[in-house]
Design a protein around this nucleic acid. Structure first.
Lengths: 260, 260
DNA sequence: TTATAATTATCATTATTTAATAATTTTGTT
DNA sequence: AACAAAATTATTAAATAATGATAATTATAA
């Protein structure tokens, strides 16, 4: 264990299910002497990446809230897309969960979400949550814009039930890419269906998607054209705004670099 | 520069105003050779604390969104208080911003906020934002629960205009502590007034506050009793829930420690 | 294609981390 | 308040890792 990994391994212990740890528990879990853990933890507490709670437990520190906020206010995808999620929800014919998601390592991560006030069920799509790469329209609209060797690598990391399943997935991906949108049913949450379009910006390295998730019970065939129209309209709008933000950033950097 | 500081110093460069940096810019800013910065950045990109953007710029990575989410779902204060902010807003006689805040180093940080739909002005109270320790009801309801040497230390870190100001602040703090609530006018944002009560839990080391912020123009004297009644009701409720969460956590840790 | 910028690799030197143990502080309990 | 137990910090020599100058490679843009 060296470098940043030393710290990362400790942080990675903290989860929704288990959000506080003692030094002794960490020490056991990482098979590292407690004197070492004490020293490392002290550093991280000073930096506010951890904080001490009661009963000699430690938990994640406020630094994460602070940096998360900075991302929220500066990430081009969030900045451009967040304001449209509510509008999209309001214009959809039935109650929906609307999601912006992006590629995150070998997974897809939801970076912004808006649920209509009376949407009944809980969904897996909540900001910050990691989603499977190959299930659900949200993810598919992201992976369908990736090609060549990179796609191959990503797909090979996934566990398909059979080679047939894998080939079908690749085939579906191609046809979705042609159509320009995705639809899936119950792949992530039972009783829910998802529609999605791709969002991308090469210059900013953004590979993302905009999606609307509905209760299967609410859905009628006549809703479909409206849903697709909304998604494609707002998808283009988000891309346009991302581009504007990109130009703003460039301008800003040009200014700050020339004045110094 | 050593240990975690090495990484923290780089992260601290990223702000809402300046959210992307090149290696060369970082290198100059920290007066450290670029070969060193390249190596450190690579580690942090691997750990997803940074990510590369376009034009050889780097920005904060998705790890912050992930850990922020874990805090959101597990921090006792957020878990206990978040659901009540909307209710509090709905029961207030005029539109309001409602805030949960806690001590964060030498500052106060907002950890959850809910703004009524038609609240007009922008406020400084947004989740993740650092607030001054000595201005505003939100902060005062936190610092008024701190006593003795710790209070002395915190106050001595602040810049008061004069010794008289400092003494007045301490005097006001004492009287607020007796009353059990705080009121301030325009100390943080002009045209806004704030009311706040303390939230604390010794066992969990929580020193926090619940506050409602209003437009001065909307406010009538007859609103005051309702506002205080709401704050104190919900304040106690939040403390009760924090305590329940504490007991849940203890139970959980007891179980996991005994089964292993 | 070529020139330029960005990034990675190399490596001797220097500095830091490790972990066993001892010392100290804090906490909870009579 | 005094005690015992637990938690945390300090101290070390030995082991390991970080640094930064430079060279080599790779990406990018004209």
């Amino acid at each position: 264990m060296s470098g940043f990994q030393r710290y990362k391994k400790i942080l990675d212990l903290f989860s929704e299910e288990r959000s506080s740890w003692t030094v002794l528990e960490i020490s056991k879990s990482l098979k590292t002497p407690s004197s070492t853990i004490y020293r490392i933890i002290r550093e991280m507490v000073t930096a506010e990446f951890l904080e001490s709670a009661s009963g000699s437990y430690f938990r994640l520190g406020p630094a994460f809230i602070k940096f998360n906020r900075i991302i929220n206010f500066s990430d081009p995808l969030v900045r451009a897309g967040q304001p449209f999620l509510k509008k999209l929800a309001n214009e959809n014919p039935i109650t929906s969960v609307n999601v912006l998601a992006r590629l995150y390592g070998n997974n897809v991560m939801c970076v912004a979400d808006y649920k209509s006030p009376y949407f009944k069920k809980n969904t897996s799509y909540q900001r910050g949550k990691l989603m499977p790469l190959i299930y659900g329209a949200t993810s598919r609209a992201i992976i369908m814009q990736i090609t060549g060797k990179r796609l191959e690598k990503l797909i090979n990391l996934e566990n398909f039930k059979s080679d047939k399943d894998k080939n079908n997935f690749i085939k579906d991906l191609k046809s979705d890419r042609k159509k320009g949108y995705c639809f899936t049913e119950g792949q992530v949450d039972k009783g829910l269906i998802g529609f999605a379009v791709s969002i991308s910006n090469k210059k900013l390295g953004i590979e993302a998607s905009l999606s609307s998730i509905f209760n299967l019970d609410d859905f009628l065939l006549e809703h479909e054209p409206v849903i697709y129209a909304n998604l494609s309209t707002y998808g283009l709008l988000v891309e346009k705004y991302i581009n504007e933000i990109f130009e703003d950033i460039q301008k800003y950097h040009h200014e700050t670099n020339s004045t110094r």
